[in-house]
Every structure is written in structure tokens, then in C-alpha cells.
Design a protein around this nucleic acid. Structure first.
Lengths: 161, 161
DNA sequence: CGGGGTAGACAACCTGGTTAACCATCTGCT
DNA sequence: AGCAGATGGTTAACCAGGTTGTCTACCCCG
């Protein structure tokens, strides 16, 4: 019997992810960004990276444009983005990140980095880098931030408030 | 700017989890256990570990007893468990794992272990153990298999089939 | 024997996805 | 010029997997 089973390893990975996300979410809420889930941050980032229409955002996030529209609605009603009509294409509603959206992005990134730094202090910065490198190798492509696969969205959801 | 941002680390962890789970799920489907999601395996494991009623299972899994009942319904209709009335307590319907359920458990565990072994071959068995130890430390409590927190359930779901 | 707590079932609802259908608009080709 | 087809956005219906609330049957304890 192995010291650690494969199933436990899976749980460990998930647990690590949740630890990070929960911490960030909690801090975000305390900084006036309550209700924001990491998926919103990633969507915002994708918009900033050029996905400035609902269809584009859907493609970037790997979800349907309808699902993207719901995320956009949230971001708009919470004043993270504005939608303005495109003079060059009357079908499009171009997405523009607001000042508040920029702030969320900045704060969110800093919080994630904080958690990472905290981890680095626990196991050592070098060890953390090794861990990341190994993980990246195991996962394969590495899942760059700029193109988040669809399955991510549901994982980033809130879990039973 | 850090080589790897905190957000990327989070994605890496999630990606690792998904890699494992997807692989196991795929293999499971090929072995006649299509439609089974890891959450079902964990539920089965919890039942085997003593959570032999819906309420118990709900507590073990950290979800409501109604949610547990839905999982139980799945397991029963797919012949992984049987429900039999408890002679000592007429309220209860005791859950018993069937032969097929046992097989699922065995196969599932083996598949998870296979993935882990595969990973061990990629980065080295010792390195993998170190990685696990570090992860366990970072996550904190370690999320033992026997008591799965509620937020797990949604993470184990299928993503857009 | 009666009251409080527990097991299970049922119903209504929420969230965050999906597909399908539709209209307006753009683009490319004839 | 004009039309066919692709694209952007919206709305609607649906689904999965959770939630809470309520109800009944039943156990246990004073």
C-alpha cells in the first residue's frame, strides 16, 4: 500500500487550489469586492487581453457566448466594465474595463501573489519554484492565464456560499 | 515580476487535479463504468467507511442529506449499492455496497494510483513524495479521504460533458 | 405516554452552465 | 448592386447539482 494514494494526491491538488482561491476571495470581499469570484477576475483579464466582445470572451473562456454574456452582465452591473457600441460594427458592444475593474485586477493579482509568497515562506521559495515546475510538467501545457479552458469556469464558482 | 504568478500557481493546482480526474474518468468509462464521476467513488468510499445512511453520507460529504439522497439514487440505479430496510430502526434505509460497487472502488483506486505512478515516472518517485508532503503542509489539514468537505462535490462534477 | 430529535421524502428554488432560435448587421462573391 | 452566409447579441427553455423548508414516520428519553 502506497504511503499516499493517487486519490489523496488528487484531493491534495484540489485542496491547494481551493485554499488559494478561498483566501483570495475572502480578502477581496474585505476590500469592497464582495461577490466577486475568481472567474470574474479571469474574465476581466481576458477582456483586457483583447477579448472585448461577448463572443470573444466566450471563446477565450471556453464557454458559450450566452454564458459569457451572463458574466458580462455581472461585471457591468458591478461597474467593472462598460459596454459601448462600436462605431465600426453596429452588431458589437465593445467591452471596456473601468477604473474599478482595473483596481480589481490589480488587487486580485496582488492577493494571489500574496498567497503564493506565504506558501513560499512555509516551504521555501526555491522549493515552491520546483513544485511549480514539476506541476507544470505534469499538467502538460501549463494552462496559461490567457486562454482558460472551459472546464475552469465551474470550478471557480462559489461553493455553497 | 515573479517568474510564476500566484494566479498561475492556482491554475496549475487545478489543472493537476483535472488531469488526474479526467484520466481516471476516461479509463473508468472504458471499463464499463461510464457516467461515473469521482464524486460517486468518494461517496461509495464513505459508505464503505460507515456512512450507511443518507443523512450520514450527507454529513461525511459535507452536503445536505437531500443532495446525498440524489447521489444515492444514482448509485442505486446503477447497481453500485443496495438499500435495505434496517430491522433495528424502521426509519433508516441501510446502504450496502454491491459486488459491482466493490469493483468500482477497486478499479477506481487502482486507476488513481496508476496516474500517480505515471507522474512518479515523469518527475521521480521521491520528488513526487516531496511534492505531496509539501502540498499536504500547505493545504493544512490534508483533507483525508474519509471526510470530504462539501465544496468538493461540485468540483468533481463533469464539465460540459 | 408524551416531547424532542432524527431519517427520509417531496417540493420549490438558485446558480451557472447548455442548446436552440431569432434578429440585426457585416462581408464576400457574383 | 444585391444576395448568401457568417457573426454578434438577445431571449428562452432546459439541465445538473446543489440549497432550504416542510412533512411524516419513527426512536429515545424523562
Amino acid at each position: 500500500m502506497p504511503e499516499s494514494s493517487g486519490a489523496e494526491l488528487a484531493l491534495l491538488l484540489l485542496g491547494g487550489f481551493r485554499s488559494m482561491v478561498d483566501a483570495v476571495q475572502r480578502e477581496l470581499a474585505e476590500r469592497g469586492h464582495g461577490g466577486v469570484r475568481p472567474v470574474h477576475e479571469f474574465a476581466l483579464r481576458a477582456i483586457g487581453a483583447g477579448a472585448d466582445t461577448a463572443s470573444d470572451l466566450g471563446r477565450s473562456l471556453g464557454v458559450s457566448k450566452q454564458a459569457a454574456a451572463k458574466t458580462i452582465a455581472f461585471l457591468e452591473t458591478h461597474d467593472y466594465i462598460r459596454r459601448e457600441s462600436d462605431p465600426d460594427d453596429a452588431r458589437r458592444k465593445r467591452l471596456r474595463i473601468t477604473r474599478r475593474g482595473d483596481e480589481l485586477l490589480t488587487v486580485g493579482q496582488a492577493l494571489f501573489d500574496d498567497v503564493r509568497a506565504h506558501w513560499g515562506r512555509q516551504i521555501g521559495a526555491e522549493e515552491l519554484e520546483v513544485l511549480e515546475a514539476q506541476l507544470a510538467r505534469l499538467v502538460g501545457s501549463g494552462y496559461p492565464l490567457s486562454s482558460i479552458p472551459g472546464w475552469l469556469a465551474s470550478e471557480l464558482g462559489e461553493s455553497a456560499s
